[in-house]
């Protein structure tokens, strides 16, 4: 861990100024991922701006009938919040599928959006990684890539190749829910659609999100539609708990009179960001739940998927998980 200075502003303006005036500074909230990476010498901020004193921990209704999750509300407080549990149980389920009780007590909603990949090569500074050290290569491409991405990868140019996945469970649910991220920065406030918040590696695998330097996430807005009746989050991993997803699926359905009126399907563990295809989801609308074959939907969602050896199994696993998740959300299968 490198040497750094520390600041603890008490208002948002000062916090944003801190980053604007200190190059190499970073916000710290829960610290669960940042301190981990600093000890690994992957991250080396020269200044930490502790934002825990900012008044951003509330969870409250929005005027549009949705719910605003404060950026500093912890994952645990969010998952167990009565409004989240009753109106957005998918989110609650996804959060509780991740990490451990201790980490959920520390990790914040805002911080969760910035979780970095679990790629072994990203973490090990003695191996090449374009995300950590631009241009150094991708160790995973021809290496041990069991946990890596099968969709939206960058694998053509050795200097920008990246097959890392986004590790969050919460974000998969937020993607399905069409959440909106509220940020404040040097240029003022703005909102970012969740689908636009995380990005694919492309030619700049070192960038995980579309947030601009110095911007601070203040809240995550959930739209009114929360799929409280028909939903599920399936997480497949190497042990029963406290492990990152190999594949996860978040599904929210609206069903009226046995017919699907709205459908959301987001995948985790398969790409550099939570994976959605709205055009495929749209194919479900109008379908009868008891007569629909979900397999072609799964096929369509995985279209273009590519395995790299150790992770090729994820393609089939994801398809099966999608089918099961749709059946579960539609209550054709027990929720477990």
């Amino acid at each position: 861990m490198n040497s750094f200075s520390y600041a603890r502003p008490s208002d948002i303006g000062t916090a944003v100024d801190e980053l604007a005036t200190h190059e190499g500074a970073k916000f710290i909230a829960g610290g669960t991922n940042l301190l981990d990476l600093m000890k690994e010498n992957v991250e080396h901020p020269n200044r930490l701006v502790d934002i825990n004193r900012l008044a951003l921990s509330t969870i409250e209704d929005t005027e549009e009938g949705g719910l605003r999750l404060g950026a500093l509300a912890t994952n645990a407080d969010t998952a167990y919040h009565s409004a989240v549990q009753s109106r957005y149980p998918l989110l609650s389920q996804a959060i509780l599928a991740g990490a451990s009780a201790q980490l959920r007590n520390m990790a914040t909603n805002g911080g969760n959006l910035f979780q970095r990949t679990r790629c072994y090569y990203f973490y090990d500074t003695q191996t090449p990684c374009n995300k950590r050290e631009p241009g150094s290569g991708c160790g995973a491409l021809n290496g041990f890539n069991r946990i890596h991405a099968i969709l939206g990868t960058s694998d053509q140019n050795p200097e920008t190749a990246c097959i890392a996945t986004h590790p969050s469970d919460m974000c998969v649910a937020l993607a399905a829910l069409d959440a909106v991220v509220r940020v404040t920065g040097p240029m003022g406030e703005r909102t970012i659609r969740f689908a636009d918040f995380h990005r694919l590696p492309g030619h700049e695998p070192w960038l995980d999100t579309t947030i601009q330097p110095g911007e601070l996430v203040t809240a995550i807005d959930l739209p009114a539609k929360g799929f409280p009746e028909y939903f599920t989050y399936i997480k497949l991993r190497d042990r029963q708990s406290y492990a990152f997803a190999l594949v996860s699926v978040a599904v929210g359905l609206e069903i009226d009179n046995n017919r699907i009126t709205d459908a959301r399907i987001a995948l985790g563990g398969v790409a550099h960001k939570p994976w959605r295809k709205p055009e495929v989801e749209a194919r479900l609308v109008g379908q009868s739940i008891s007569e629909t074959d979900f397999a072609p939907i799964a096929e369509a969602l995985l279209e273009g998927a590519k395995g790299y050896g150790h992770n090729t199994f994820k393609i089939e696993l994801a398809k099966r998980a999608i089918v099961r998740a749709l059946q579960r959300a539609a209550k054709l299968e027990p929720q477990v």
């Binding site: 072994y120 090990d124 191996t127 160790g139 041990f144 190497d238 042990r239 029963q240 708990s241 406290y242």
Partner: peptide, 25 residues
């Protein structure tokens, strides 16, 4: 413990990626 033979190095060298049984198992 999975070794990447490109580097002759164990890659899952931590307790998040080297899985041992947890309580729920």
């Amino acid at each position: 413990s999975v070794m990447d033979h490109q580097f002759g190095r164990f890659m899952n060298h931590n307790l998040a990626e080297y899985h041992v049984a947890v309580n729920a198992d």
